[in-house]
Design a protein around this nucleic acid. Structure first.
Lengths: 330, 330
DNA sequence: TTGTATGCGTTATCAT
DNA sequence: ATGATAACGCATACAA
């Protein structure tokens, strides 16, 4: 492909001048025309690496996530990419590795200008803080690294409150929980929201009703069995993601229970399967795609120097009422 | 961050020597030690852009897809990324744009070394051929650009044959089809496989049984309604992806039909929802993640010069029998 | 084995 | 307004 030198030669100007028209700096209208003509003829396209080397900015953002697919990370990728594309940035996606040093590699190599980290796991926590200390642009999605690094999160406590309240208002008093791993900050927040609602409506908290899952469908199916042997048996379940909710429903179906008739089930995320499933799943909607978009905007702001302080954006959840709780809608 | 010059200075050698140890070229063991020590002390990390500029290789591959999430593109991304990561390459993902020129931009900018294009749509077809003519490394996944560009595909005809045969062997003779858009090559191949199976088992083809969907759940629900009014009513359905199959089942449930008792339904893809759904969906498994992996390996082979000719890899499908056809398994 | 010099394709500085 | 030239950080051909 043509370089700036060839364009300069064809247009009969210096490459400095070509660079000027490329970057919209003042040039006489006649030279502008000449240069543009040469650019078109040679189908010239500036070399991003050379530009990056000179400007110290590649216009690429990296995303680190434990998994690149699924109902959660797919929309995040989409949300990020949409924002970046509008700003002529690109997105490199990378699966999280156990080795922390990998985290830093792309940044230090200058392969990316900044890193968006989306992982609830503890992997990389120290690594993230180290990056932050080296002043690398980092934004965390739904993480638990604390105050020092910019983040976009979701009001988990509120979300769990909404779910629990909905069930209470439907008349349930024994409400089981299939939680995400207790070590995640979001789990603790959600459990607090669950307790808030119980307290608010004068119900007592029973620890036996709370089971720890691991976000997989299988764990949902496993934990519902444990909940079913309780006396008295719960009549409603809050699962901390849609997959575990659906796993629970599978378990209920296999034991001959009907949903929502015998058991109301409510999920978390409003991922694609929540609408796809039958019965359609009542769920706490997290604005997943928007989380990605907000993180991307935040990253761009940091890079452009608009945003200098560490900030934490907290997005709100909303309850999506479908059929799985028998609320009579849809 | 430190540069090669600072490392050279600290180690007391020239930067050429540092470059040599970085690239495993012969150096005396003492200088090797000195240089490595300096590298560690300075936490030196080579600058990918400078290296790329010099080597004309960034070690980044681009992926263009119509959508970055969902049961199909998620696993593709995962498959690609896994292979690339092992080879120290990175993956830039980008949503397909209607404008063809966007396709070429990343390549011409040298922001990526090659492009993997995964889109059944006709978008970019001319653009792809143009890229190929300019000798840019391009691999197409499941595309319909013809012989001239390397591709990895799936044996769609065989897949549809397997699905249809399965239903025939279960005793069905009126088998409806909810197809993907007829303009896609894969649709035509699958319809041929469907017809092959009918013919093989002495059944006659009835065009009224074939409806055109658009891969969305809604279209599955829409088209099942049309199939239900036929006389005699079909007793089994082949849908050309899992989402349409599930849409069809929703439609059936709403009309009071039971699956598989009143209607056998079989999907295509074996995406995550196929296992998640209730009843678990019998489906034609496409090795989606492997398609990504194969495409990535092919791209790396092209870049390294191992693969020079245009080749087409065709992966085989397999039938995954679950509950939605009443075959008695699982 | 090691060092020097040059090129990779830009942008930026300093002249003119 | 434009041109010459020096970075940017690395790899490499050629010398020593």
């Amino acid at each position: 492909m043509a370089t700036i030198n060839e364009v300069a030669k064809l247009a009969g100007v210096s490459k400095a001048t070509v660079s000027r028209v490329l970057n919209n700096r003042p040039v006489s209208s006649e030279t502008h025309a000449k240069v543009m003509k040469a650019i078109r003829e040679l189908k010239y396209q500036p070399n991003a690496q050379a530009r990056g080397l000179s400007l110290r900015q590649v216009k690429i953002i990296g995303l680190i996530a434990p998994d690149l697919r699924g109902g959660f990370y797919g929309p995040i990728i989409l949300g990020i990419e949409e924002v970046l594309q509008k700003n002529d940035f690109n997105l490199i996606v990378s699966r999280a590795q156990s080795k922390e040093y990998r985290l830093a590699k792309m940044l230090k190599e200058k392969k990316v200008d900044g890193l968006i980290i989306a992982t609830p796991r503890r992997i990389g926590e120290k690594g993230i803080l180290a990056l932050k200390k080296d002043n690398f642009p980092v934004v965390v999605i739904d993480g638990n690294v604390g105050e020092q690094v910019s983040s976009v999160e979701v009001d988990s406590r509120q979300g769990a409150y909404q779910a629990t309240e909905h069930l209470i208002k439907l008349g349930h008093t024994r409400i089981g929980v299939i939680s995400s791993p207790y070590s995640f900050k979001e789990s603790r927040d959600r459990l607090r929201g669950y307790q808030d609602a119980l307290k608010q409506y004068g119900l007592t908290y029973d620890h036996a009703l709370v089971r720890e899952g691991n976000y997989s469908m299988a764990s949902g199916e496993r934990e519902i069995e444990q909940l079913l042997v309780l006396e008295p048996r719960p009549t409603a379940i809050v699962a901390f993601n849609d997959e575990m909710a659906i796993g629970a429903i599978h378990g209920l179906f296999k034991k001959g229970f009907s949903v929502p008739r015998d058991m109301a089930v409510i999920g978390f995320d409003d991922s694609e399967i929540a609408q796809t499933f039958y019965p359609p799943l009542t769920t706490v909607r997290q604005p997943i795609k928007e989380m990605g978009a907000v993180a991307a905007r935040k990253m761009l702001a940091i890079l452009s120097g608009e945003e200098t302080a560490v900030t934490h954006v907290i997005l709100q959840t909303s309850l999506v009422v479908r059929a799985s709780c028998g609320a009579g809608l849809q």
